[in-house]
Amino acid sequence: MRLFFINRYIKQKRLKSLLLCISLCLNAQAVDATEVIVSANAVGQLKNSHKLQAIFSLRTLYWPNGEKIKVFVLPDNNAVHKKFVKEKLGMFPHQLRRTWNRMTYTGTGQPPITVDSIEEMLDKIQHTNNAIGYIDRRVEGESIQYFNAP
């Protein structure tokens, strides 16, 4: 009888530990989510995440203060770009490219500026006014401003 209780105790503890481990792993995953970053002067102007699709599809062209939004992106085949487009925009890179190409080659719009690395992305966003871009995870730094900053 005693042995039975011990077994059950062990099983319960195992289960709890397993759940804890899973939740920690999920947290680790969440840390890896892409983050939208903006220039210091654009912080808090737009917080609504559903606006992101309109911004990156170049349907929303101006910040609420009237300044033109400067969009920076990574190349289409970059893993962070693919992840960002899926996670934050609910789209696929080829859909965005279709929209950008049509604007670029009919002269009806200027496509986002492509940067080659996360390092360059951080640099551009920090040194350009009215800019928006994304990086592969949240990093701590005074000069990095997040789109959905509290």
């Binding site: 011990i6 105790y9 503890k13 530990s17 397993l18 481990c21 920690l24 792993c25 947290n27």
Partner: peptide, 17 residues
């Protein structure tokens, strides 16, 4: 016996973190 598996799991979690 009860602590052993729990500790191993915690260790793995900490390591991954």
């Amino acid at each position: 016996i009860t602590l052993m598996p729990r500790n191993i799991l915690y260790f793995v979690c900490l390591l991954s973190g």
